[in-house]
């Protein structure tokens, strides 16, 4: 995977802009990385205890009880593991991609609940489950997840950042 930033050699103007970008980018990625880590860690912790997390998954009416239970148990753990990796900066690009993929799955879930006319809380943070009609906020939830998806995209496209374990292994220096 090539991570060095190729600058256009033709004009002096773009070259300077590109140098400036090369200096700023690692800090932008660091912010995105830690921001996404915080979001995921908070999402994981707020879903616990697992019984409540299972309840949130069941509200989507997409899976069998057994599968809902499995997802309810492992989803907060997966979020926490991704948060941990983003925080440490290990395999940054791939973890960023995985986080982005997770956001896409979440958005798909919310869209499906919306399309089926369910009245549920998305259970993104804290406990989900049925809510009163007119109390749903799918649009807002999707917009928020798109924001997190953007953070994940930044981390995936420009994985180079300071304070990352990857650097110890010679990656994204």
């Amino acid at each position: 995977m090539d991570t060095t930033h190729q600058s256009a050699p033709d004009a002096a103007e773009p070259a300077a802009a590109s140098r400036r970008w090369a200096a700023i980018q690692p800090w932008i990625t660091l912010l995105a990385r830690l921001g996404l880590a915080a979001v995921l860690a908070y999402a994981a912790v707020s879903k616990l205890p697992p019984a409540l997390s299972v309840q949130s998954v069941e509200a989507y009416q997409l899976f069998s009880p057994e599968l809902s239970r499995l997802i309810g148990f492992t989803l907060p753990l997966l979020e926490f593991a991704l948060a941990l990796l983003l925080f440490m900066g290990l395999a940054t690009r791939y973890v960023g991609a995985a986080s982005g993929l997770l956001m896409v799955v979440f958005i798909a879930g919310i869209v499906s609940a919306w399309a089926r006319g369910l009245n549920i809380d998305c259970g993104c943070f804290g406990t989900g489950g049925p809510v009163a009609e007119g109390e749903t906020r799918y649009g807002l939830d999707i917009a928020r997840d798109l924001g997190f998806l953007a953070l994940a995209a930044i981390v995936t496209i420009w994985p180079r950042s300071p304070l990352a374990l990857d650097r110890l292994f010679g990656l994204y220096r």
């Binding site: 148990f73 492992t74 907060p76 753990l77 997966l78 926490f80 593991a81 991704l82 941990l84 990796l85 290990l90």
Partner: peptide, 11 residues
């Protein structure tokens, strides 16, 4: 490995 330990152990 980290994901496996966290998710597996936590599960």
């Amino acid at each position: 490995a980290v994901v496996l330990v966290v998710v597996g152990g936590g599960y």
